[in-house]
């Protein structure tokens, strides 16, 4: 008998180990759920990690109020199916209360305001660990992220002073008021995620599959036409076959021209594509280090 795991099963085993460490080391963890495929994968892995018990922490969704309606539908369906507890942190509420100020103009986005709502929700719930589905292959600042990432009492990340992480030993020790961000799928790539979702036949929102949608082009990126984005007079809306590679809110998530209608077709597409998945994210394009800058302040 050959004792070996394929790469997907080995990644799964690593992620399950990390999820269980969180349940064991922290008193009050929470899983940040965006509705995207990475957080869907996280929920699925958490289900595996604690079976036959329920997932021992709630899901936290930071709602910008600018979501694709499909995202919310899928979220509610999943929560119901798992019997999980859902907490919603609302950016709109923060704006209404005057805690956040909305950006104006053509490229206005609530992406930056998510940080305030997120830190607020973490504080309110007294959560000491927030699980996220970030991957190191996504973005260069994330390539330096630890599995267990320490945050000070202001939720800030100090990339130059990260704890060394060796073997499978994770140090989650902290002072009162500090918390951790934990990233169990750090070592997965976009392709690994799709291959795994296909292998395990995980249900996904329709947004990931090619569908007809009204879109327009801005700086080389296709955006879905919606009320939340102010269009320039020169920007023309047309119908195209598109799909999402990442799902954020509608103002900053680019869609891609695609005919992939099954997970297998998506895998083929991802395997030969020449653009990174965050290539369609206008929030990353603001400067060369915009992800690092946002992360330092507490962005997910």
């Amino acid at each position: 008998m050959n004792y070996y795991l394929n790469h997907l099963k080995e990644l799964e085993a690593e992620s399950i180990f990390v999820l269980r460490e969180v349940a064991a080391q922290f008193e009050n963890p929470v899983l940040m759920f965006s509705g995207g495929k990475d957080s869907i994968l996280m929920v699925y892995l958490a289900q595996k990690a604690f079976y036959p018990a329920r997932i021992p922490f709630p899901l936290l969704h930071i709602d910008t109020g600018h979501n694709f309606p499909e995202t919310i539908e899928y979220r509610d369906y999943l929560v119901e199916k798992l019997g999980a507890r859902l907490i919603v942190g609302s950016v709109q509420e923060n704006i209404d209360k005057g805690l956040s100020i909305e950006e104006k103009g053509f490229n206005a986005s609530r992406n930056g305001l998510q940080t305030t709502a997120l830190l607020d929700s973490l504080e309110k719930g007294k959560f000491d660990a927030a699980l996220g589905g970030a991957r190191r292959d996504e973005e260069k600042a994330r390539a330096k992220e630890r599995f267990f990432s320490h945050r000070d009492e202001f939720g800030q990340w100090d990339p130059k002073n990260q704890r060394p992480e060796l073997w499978n030993i994770f140090n989650g020790k902290k002072r009162f008021g500090e918390h951790f961000r934990v990233f169990p799928i750090s070592n997965w790539t976009e392709l690994d995620v799709w291959q795994y979702l296909a292998m395990e036949k995980v249900e996904l929102p329709n947004l990931y599959f090619a569908h007809k949608r009204m879109v327009f082009e801005r700086e080389g990126t296709l955006l879905a036409d919606c009320d939340y984005i102010e269009k320039r007079p020169t920007e023309v809306v047309k119908e195209m076959m598109v799909r999402c590679r990442t799902i954020g809110d509608m103002t900053c998530t680019g869609v891609w021209e695609s005919n992939a209608t099954t997970v297998e077709e998506i895998i083929e597409e991802v395997a030969v594509t020449r653009q990174t998945e965050r290539g369609g994210r206008t929030d990353d394009k603001r400067s060369e280090t915009s992800m690092e800058d946002r992360k330092k302040k507490g962005y997910f």
């Binding site: 790469h7 292959d137 260069k140 600042a141 994330r142 990339p159 130059k160 690092e292």
Partner: peptide
């Protein structure tokens, strides 16, 4: 520049921290 992700690393032209990179062939990841 592909592996040097942090601002201070780019400024100094050195790798300070461990950077993780991923690639795969049909046989292995």
């Amino acid at each position: 520049l592909l592996t040097d992700g942090l601002k201070s690393e780019r400024e100094q032209g050195i790798t300070i921290d461990v950077a993780y990179r991923y690639f795969s062939t049909p046989k292995r990841k």
